[in-house]
Design a protein around this nucleic acid. Structure first.
Lengths: 213, 213, 213, 213
DNA sequence: AATGAATGAGGGTTCATTCAT
DNA sequence: CATGAATGAACCCTCATTCAT
């Protein structure tokens, strides 16, 4: 079993090595202009080897996104059940996770949000698609739980919690995509984090105040 | 002059004809899987003709986005200077424009928001890039003007107006992308408009209320 | 008939105008990279018009060569029958014509010599091919006549006059092609004329001296 | 080591296989009408494979020329340093090499001389261009050395040795191109070799005799 | 005669993927 | 498992040529 386990770990190790290389190349070239040969070169492997670990280029690409989505979701779930935090504190913790993940790997996160595109989504194989569906359901579920808790506690005003969760998630993705593209268009400094902070201020107010008088 | 003008109009007509066909094909296949030959067929023209009107596939694709962005911006600017509306009414008018444009052509709008992607942005020619930059600056400018007016009138609380405009725009794009992808993932009904309504409620509250107590 | 003649002259005029433009463009781009559209633009005509005067691109290209070949041949023939010159003087006159034509239009001359290529020759239509055959036969005939006269006069040693004419013509084309390409390869000054002068010295000696002792 | 060497040899083998096929196809169709697909078919390989060994069509074509130029140059250099030959004998040996190479592969040789064309030359990549420059400099250098030796020995009259080398090389290329094209034009027998023999007689006389009396 | 918009066949090239070693 | 040479389908784009006006 020692042998079997080591094999398993080596295999996992290779996958990571490839995904790391893929991240670098996709990041520099974008999906279309990146070639499997270049990724293989970056990973110091041969092209053929990539196909032992990933079914094809698309799934290698998607794996990057799934990875960060799982990472993000895990962290969100971690404090949802934390009894020591009230709903508003959880909302702020959510914001901090969003920012931390953005800081951790902006490019893969952007990539994840672009996955929300018909073109990409349509071409994924069933299992991969399911993994995405489930993980993103978990992510939205975690946000929904926070919102629901706030409503139950009377801290947040009563609205459809799933819609609110969608808005929070959408704001996150929208800010990351738009502010990042502004950076590219105008050679600006990176304002994503500041903008996220302000966006969450607005969201917090919107969630707590009943209505414009 | 009659001749010259008619020629001009015919040329404009052809561009539209091609863009219409391109929209159909890109919409059905996505950028990569769409072929110029198929677009030409859809437009009942020969492949070569496409290149008389668009430099290459990428610029044809981008033209669709620019088009809707200009359309959107024009409408936004239209009521910014309307003296009969106060800032909050303008904000609601903005929401209505957003919704109307989404209803008018969801697919091209989604396409526009995906243009905010490094991969696509990096490969555009100078003139096209400039057109995007300018038009999107106009769009953000229009939103900024509304927010600024609200602040000046004491209706909105004082915050950095550009950041707020970015957040509004980002929320729009985020909601459209995310809720649309949820529809694809889960074969859901289209909730984009309802979600946008709710999102704007939150934004309106966030803009008018100073802070959580 | 006045009308008919004027029409005729105008037509001739247009051909020249097109050939002039073609010369410019072929010269700058080479045959393959030159486009009919660009030639039309240079001639301030539309692409379609070119086809009223030349059957296709290849024959337009070849016409340039035929033109200079006829020009060259005419001048050679002019002094072949000049009773005031002896064979050696005629040989020197030949050299002068060669140089003058090179100076007049180096590019078209080079073009002519490249026509001596299987690829180009094989794709010409019958009539054009015949014109080339006849004119180049005339050219070689003129040189042969000079050599023959020299032999008859006992000035040149007895050898096969056609072979000698071929060698003279080949030397001309070889020097022009090779020295011009050296210019391109090494960014050298143009040494074609000096090299031709030296080459003809050698030829003159070779023709007059019987053999190495 | 055995493995590495064999791989190397196999690779070299493939290049030859492709060049052989290319020679056949270019020879039959000329550069423009030859297609990569046809060459691949002739080599019993797939089109893609060609691009593993040659950057593009042009460089495959040029490689053929460079090959024969190197072959020619090697042989010329071989006897330049032969102490057993005097200058005149070396000149005659040069002629023999010229003839042998022509007999060995006339078509590729003609191809080489056509490379001396602006159009082709301008579109070559730096490294390939350099290889041509260097090899043709070596070729001219070898001829120059012979001529210089003749002058030093007092066998040849004193003239600029480089110019003489150029003339010899130009005569070679001119005779091959022109007499071969005569063959094509008039369905003649192949007189290249006889003409070269006569040409070298003239050159020998021209080099040894001081001047027309 | 002149136009010039439209044509559409054609080919070079790329690159994800495979498979014999 | 790993390799990497070979594959070959696919596609963008060019441009000589045509023809309705």
């Amino acid at each position: 079993m020692g042998i079997h386990e080591r094999k398993q770990r080596e295999k996992e190790q290779r996958r990571k090595q490839i995904m790391e290389a893929a991240k670098t190349v996709f990041s520099a070239k974008g999906f279309n202009r990146a070639t499997m040969e270049e990724i293989a070169g970056e990973a110091e492997l041969s092209p053929g080897t990539l196909y032992l670990y990933f079914k094809n280029k698309e799934e290698l690409h998607t794996s990057l996104s799934i990875n960060i989505l799982q990472h993000l979701t895990e962290q969100m779930i971690a404090f949802v059940h934390d009894k020591n935090l009230d709903a508003m504190e959880k909302l702020m913790a959510l914001k901090d996770v969003f920012i931390k993940v953005y800081e951790y790997d902006a490019m893969v996160l952007i990539n994840l949000f672009h996955l929300q595109s018909g073109e990409t989504l349509k071409n994924l194989s069933g299992p991969v698609l399911n993994e995405i569906k489930e993980t993103s359901a978990d992510a939205i579920g975690a946000i929904t739980a926070i919102v629901q808790e706030g409503i139950d506690q009377g801290v947040f005003v009563e609205r459809h919690p799933v819609a609110l969760a969608d808005i929070i998630w959408a704001t996150y993705s929208g800010v990351v995509l738009w502010v990042d593209s502004k950076r590219l268009l105008n050679n600006e400094k990176d304002f994503v984090i500041q903008t996220l902070e302000t966006a969450f201020e607005l969201i917090a107010i919107g969630l707590t105040q009943s209505d414009k008088p």
